[in-house]
Write a protein that binds this DNA or RNA. Structure first.
Length: 264
DNA sequence: ATGGTCGGTATCCGA
């Protein structure tokens, strides 16, 4: 069972790249963020034609939007909160069968938080911190069993999750208020599955800004995309792939797909 | 220290 998470930065613009992702990684389930498509305009036909017969999406005009595309049946999880009371399409969840038992899958798009890392001066940063706090409270009150959480969490928690820890300490995505909160959320009962495969001393990125002339040469990356599992699933973890090559696909997203393989 | 580039129903705003 292979699950992929990818901030696609517009699904309709990159349907061909979703097809390429399917050819190169053969995922069973794809979790997308920043689909930027309202539900009534979701390209169901095109997605189904790529082999994903089971689709859940939550989208709005212009911004945000998440989707789960699957080759295996999904059961929607409807008891999820309206985070920060904004109805802004940043979370979608479902369960599916893995090795004969059900697994809960959560797909998140955490607010980016704007430019100024001060919740007093910047409401977008305040929203980001509140969102992570709410998510932490919610998961704390849930049984931490057979759960996978993926998505663009917009926070790079570890020193080696950014190209320069020192230079990014004041940059939104790597500030202490954010990294501390992300660690608290993780500590609800999750294991950082990407770091299960790559030790924390090694650099690991999933995002490179569009603003660098040559992303590969400068390599100023950050690990903003994550896969977490509850500890009862760590024995099922088989392999992890960051599809770095996807950053060179024509007119691609600034995020690359991350694949996680599970044994049944 | 600065500015750099994307996407959306768009001539700014969010990332």
């Amino acid at each position: 069972m292979r699950i992929v998470t990818w901030n696609i930065n517009s699904l309709r613009l990159r349907l061909k790249l979703l097809e390429r992702l399917g050819e190169e990684l053969r995922p069973d389930i794809v979790c997308l963020q920043e689909t930027k498509v309202p539900d009534e305009l979701f390209p169901d036909e095109a997605v189904r034609a790529l082999g994903y017969a089971h689709i859940q999406h939550r989208g709005m005009k212009s911004y945000n939007g998440v989707a789960i595309l699957s080759r295996v049946p999904l059961t929607p999880l409807d008891d999820t909160p309206d985070w920060c009371a904004r109805s802004d399409c940043r979370h979608i969840a479902a369960s599916f069968a893995l090795g004969g038992a059900s697994v809960e899958l959560h797909n998140f798009y955490v607010p980016a938080g704007g430019d100024v890392p001060d919740p007093e001066a910047n409401p977008k940063f305040a929203h980001k911190l509140a969102f992570v706090d709410e998510a932490t409270s919610w998961f704390t009150g849930r049984p931490s069993r057979r759960t996978i959480l993926v998505g663009d969490l917009n926070i790079a928690p570890l020193e080696q999750d950014v190209w320069s820890h020192r230079q990014l300490l004041d940059v939104v995505s790597h500030t202490p208020p954010e990294t501390t909160r992300l660690q608290a959320w993780l500590a609800c009962g999750f294991v950082d599955a990407m770091r299960h495969f790559v030790p924390p001393e090694e650099k690991l990125y999933t995002w490179w800004s569009y603003r660098n002339r040559d992303w590969k040469a400068s390599n100023r990356g950050r690990r903003l995309d994550h896969v977490w599992v509850t500890s009862d699933l760590t024995a099922s973890l088989q392999n992890m792939t960051v599809l770095r090559d996807a950053r060179d696909w024509p007119t691609t997203s600034d995020h690359v797909p991350v694949a996680m393989d599970f044994s049944a």
